[in-house]
Design a protein around this nucleic acid. Structure first.
Lengths: 197, 197
DNA sequence: GTCTATAATTCGATAGAC
DNA sequence: GTCTATCGAATTATAGAC
């Protein structure tokens, strides 16, 4: 409110509103399910405005999935508590106000190549090195990737069942129950023994 | 080959070819990504034939995801070996020739309500009772559903990462490695101790 | 800057010839 | 039974008025 000069009042507002509406639509309906028209209607602007500001549906989608992922600082934490902190922090991110942003990426990753690539990149850059590498400094990079792979199957599976598919048996569990029961798995994948085959 | 009378030669053949092509397309592109035209082209028939045989895209999709799921007989197996048998059997189904059928359901479940409902129904009917209930006859039904929920997060997450997203770190693992490392998790979810919160 | 009007595709579905 | 032709609706994207 109270714009500086009345000049370019809703220019950035419009862009922000459209982007917010786009994230919501993409997150709920996926890339092909969401339409420019619906996004524009949600934001209260004309579909042509969306094209003007973002160029194309593809570029709007690219901006929508390109958000920063805050990573917890686990350096000052005892190794025994890292697993629980990760599970609880992960669930908190999905349950919180930024959960919609996460849903976009996971839902679209199943059908849209750009989203899939982004998810893979994020896993490599933000999990393998800073998290698993830091926890197991003496292990090989190959072993780090193996741990990251196992961790991904459990964590992405959790998000898939609870926030995408909304399976009643999974949504029926409390955050505390999930943390209690899944932490041992995450601990083992993170720093536990992984016997060679 | 060698049709009985030459009469109605490719009538059933056409239906089968179309259904096979539909399963492949739905599995790769999802419900909205697949088109009647592309399915017909793959099968070598006219798009109008697809409509004639299946009525609508929705009905064709319903038939495509309505396949029987062979379940392993675990009744005669020692409880300690059940976890490994499930993980290995599960991976075998996904890796085998029927893997395409599974991909349809999981991929479409993320965006299509009918597929999501079918997946949920299958989880309830084929996992909660016959598998987990049989393994833990003295536990409550609520506890059975909790075990099924945990199992679903790990198993669906595994399929998601390996066969849908094809994350390199996960596809880079061998079946034996996955069985070795994930079985302890599955064992715990199936029959292990789940402390109350 | 914002919106109207519309072009250009693409889709599912239908009617009807052969 | 199979295919040609096409309809009607929905979509992205563009051109241009105000």
């Amino acid at each position: 409110m109270t714009p500086e000069h009345g000049r370019k009042r809703s220019a950035e507002d419009a862009r922000a509103s459209i982007l917010a509406a786009a994230r919501a639509r993409f997150g709920q309906a996926g890339f092909e399910g969401a339409t420019i028209r619906a996004i524009a209607a949600d934001a209260g602007y004309d579909p042509a405005l969306v094209m003007r500001y973002f160029g194309s549906k593809e570029q709007l989608f690219a901006v929508s999935i390109d958000y920063d992922l805050e990573i917890f600082d686990l350096s000052a934490m005892p190794r025994e508590q890292v697993g629980e902190a990760i599970v609880r922090g992960y669930l908190g991110q999905w349950e919180g106000p930024d959960g919609a942003d996460r849903r976009i990426l996971l839902r679209a990753a199943v059908t849209h190549p750009a989203a899939r690539a982004q998810l893979e990149k994020r896993l490599t850059e933000q999990v393998v090195g800073p998290l698993i590498g830091a926890l197991n400094p003496t292990e090989s990079h190959e072993r780090h990737e193996q741990r990251a792979a196992l961790l991904a199957t459990q964590m992405l599976g959790l998000a898939l069942c609870r926030y995408m598919l909304k399976l009643p048996s999974v949504t029926g569990l409390s955050v505390d129950q999930l943390v209690r029961w899944i932490t041992p798995t995450v601990d083992r994948y993170l720093v536990g023994e992984l016997p060679d085959v």
